[in-house]
């Protein structure tokens, strides 16, 4: 009985065949694909000029320098700070003795960094728009 059932069902399904989509089916699919491909934004992989590790290294060096400078006249001195204690360097760094000066330098630095970041973002947008138009 199973064989007979299998035979009849197989024959029936084969005879019923496949359904056919409309005549414009292929054209519609290709039009959709072409439209979406044209509209789809170009994805450009943005690679940072300075890597994360690079920034960490720069940050480390800058922090070390700042700590060195700020601690120059304090009682606690790091062993390597001695090398900075030449007369010329000491005169040069003496400007950091003024707290107001240091604070103003820090604020200016933050201001410059923020603007650099904003300008680079804007430039990225211009670049992507330009690439997309091409």
């Amino acid at each position: 009985m199973d064989r007979e059932a299998d035979k009849i069902v197989r024959m029936s399904i084969k005879k019923a065949g496949l359904e056919k989509p409309g005549k414009d089916f292929l054209h519609s699919v290709m039009s959709k694909i072409e439209t979406q491909t044209e509209v789809a934004p170009v994805r450009i992989k943005n690679e940072a000029l300075i890597s994360r590790n690079g920034w960490l290294l720069i940050g480390g060096i800058v922090s070390l320098l700042l700590v060195t400078v700020l601690l120059t006249d304090s009682e606690y001195k790091l062993p390597f700070v001695i090398s900075f204690e030449t007369e010329m360097l000491h005169d040069y760094f003496s400007i950091f003795e003024s707290r107001i000066f240091v604070v103003s330098i820090v604020i200016t630095a933050i201001f410059v960094l923020l603007h650099t970041w904003l300008i680079s973002r804007k430039m990225d947008d211009w670049y992507l728009r330009y690439k997309h138009q091409m």
Partner: peptide, 21 residues
Amino acid sequence: NTAAFEHLVRKYQDMVFTLAV
């Protein structure tokens, strides 16, 4: 070559449509 996709659509369109039906 987007046009090459037409061959795949032609080959599978009936079966895909039948399954959807």
